[in-house]
Every structure is written in C-alpha cells, then in structure tokens.
C-alpha cells in the first residue's frame, strides 16, 4: 500500500488507482504485416522487471486520467510520475 501523486489531483491513496501494466509498448504500425512471433511479443511478452519499471496507471476513482510512473518493483518505491504522451526520461 502506498500513496500516488496523481499529476492532475495530487497525492491520493493507491486504492483509488488501477495499474495498467508496462508502459511504452507501441501498437504495431502495420498490424497486417506482423508475424505470429511479433504478435506474441506485442500481446503477451512482458519485461516484468524486478527493480526500476516503467508503468501506466489510471486514477480510476478520481479524475480517471492515465499517466506514466517509474517505480521500483522490489520495494514499491515510486521514482517519477509523468503525463501520458511525454517521453520517458533517459538514464
């Protein structure tokens, strides 16, 4: 259990949010060209990192907006929150 600083509403309890999984997975630009292996990679394969992970979250019981989060999955510590559409910081 932890607090999340929604970029639109401020700090709220994690129970107000839903986790939307790994961030920055790009939808294939030409889906008809994709092989089965590439579809599997896009649909199912996940980094599932122990450590610093990039994720999407949604303030479901608040403003209902999506945003990105960088979180350490080994101790649930939130490193950074940035808005949808913004590029992830390097390094």
């Amino acid at each position: 259990m932890f607090l999340i600083n929604c970029p639109y509403c401020g700090e709220r309890d994690q129970s107000e949010f839903i986790a939307g999984g790994e961030a920055h997975i790009e939808r294939p630009k030409q889906p008809t060209e994709l092989s089965d292996d590439e579809w599997a990679e896009y649909l199912f394969m996940r980094k599932n990192i122990k450590g610093i992970q990039f994720e999407r979250w949604n303030h479901a019981h608040g403003c209902r907006k999506w945003f990105n989060m960088i979180r350490d999955t080994s101790n649930d510590e939130i490193k950074l929150i940035y808005k949808m559409g913004e590029k992830p910081p390097k390094g």
């Binding site: 990192i49 122990k50 999955t73 080994s74």
Partner: peptide, 10 residues
C-alpha cells in the same frame, strides 16, 4: 493488480 516483488500487498 500491479507488478511487485516486495512480498507485501495492499
């Protein structure tokens, strides 16, 4: 619903 290796839950 979130990925975590912390062996704690909400």
């Amino acid at each position: 619903d979130y990925v975590s290796y912390s062996q704690k839950g909400s």
